[in-house]
Design a protein around this nucleic acid. Structure first.
Lengths: 202, 202
DNA sequence: TATTCTATCTATAAACT
DNA sequence: TAGTTTATAGATAGAAT
């Protein structure tokens, strides 16, 4: 951009981040509008900023909803019978969400540990902050990986960036498709698209 | 834009419109991603093009879904105003749980990516198994870490100040005993600590 | 803090391959 | 039809106000 190119990463400075948010949000809305106008496509944009009290929506909340509605009817998945036994449904919903949340928390703890280890390895975290138990885990983990790492080091020293490998591999994956493709195939197969089952969620 | 500034109106020419659609769609996705990254905001973008068979979604169908749910609850909260107290209570509870869950999920995804990256770097995971989207994330992540790592390399090549920290911390551990003592002795003897090799070579 | 300015970076219409 | 190049319009980070 202007005076300096900024790194594509979270902007630490609060003021700068807020300004960037405001400007870029405006820019995005503008571009969405242009795309819609120039090519006559149905589009909507939603941004939930931690700064403004109400979220930003284009063209408008109602029109954005109508865009979603449009596709609901398009796939003929639209009309749902009125929900009976509302209270029972909600209670059940809560139970399921709680269960899911607990599972997530457990998984989080496990990943937290793994991540912590790597942060230490990268020198991003001070080893003094770690508990005795965590240090034990860290040592074990690293020791167990030493052999693999040494091999890896040799490989990386000879041939350049991993990024290149990634880029090269992307093409192959491209034809195979990811879960996004999978999801779209599901839609085309007549299943309930993820973005249409909103009325099931609350 | 380039050679000629175009009028902000529907592009009559089919070919030109299709090209513009493709390019601008890509540009929008890019900008949404940037906004989300730079300012850490929840955002999603959906474009239903008359040209491509499958609609374009960012960041992923699943994440977009979670953002849309927030949007929906925000805009349609009024619908439940007339509900009786019990139901209202339950609904509010659901909303809070959802929010918490979504946050957990996002955190999880972040950690998943971190872990995945290291697994790839360690050669424990085959890049061919990754989806296109995941590879994109991976590439971004690796790129973002490159700078830090390069700095780290320079630091580690000159002097190993981390060793001091480790040794200091290990003394506490020492009372617990174990083969850690051996490792620490190696450190004190001036050898390169095991976890520094990794940084050096990545 | 918000607005405006400006130098620079990014996006992209058209040409080219 | 799709990818690359080029020249220009648009977006925007930091400074000025």
């Amino acid at each position: 951009m202007p005076w300096r190119k900024i790194k594509l990463a979270f902007i630490q400075n609060d003021a700068a981040r807020k300004i960037a948010y405001k400007q870029r949000k405006r820019g995005i809305m503008k571009k969405v509008k242009k795309l819609s106008t120039l090519c006559d496509v149905a589009a909507c944009a939603i941004v939930y900023g931690p700064y403004d009290p109400n979220s930003e929506v284009w063209p408008s909340p109602s029109e954005a909803k109508s865009v979603l509605e449009q596709f609901r009817s398009f796939t003929e998945m639209g009309r749902y019978n009125k929900m009976v036994n509302q209270e029972e449904f909600l209670i059940e919903k809560i139970a399921k969400l709680k269960e899911k949340l607990n599972k997530q928390v457990r998984e989080n703890q496990e990943k937290e540990k793994t991540k912590l280890m790597f942060e230490c390895l990268l020198g991003q975290k001070d080893l003094n902050d770690l508990s005795l138990e965590t240090l034990g885990d860290l040592e074990w983990f690293v020791n167990s990986k030493m052999e693999v790492i040494q091999d890896r080091i040799q490989l990386l020293n000879s041939s350049p960036p991993v990024v290149v490998v990634v880029a090269a591999t992307r093409d192959e994956v491209n034809s195979g498709g990811g879960d996004q493709v999978e999801a779209m195939e599901a839609v085309h197969a007549g299943k309930q698209p993820w973005f249409l089952d909103l009325n099931l969620k609350l």
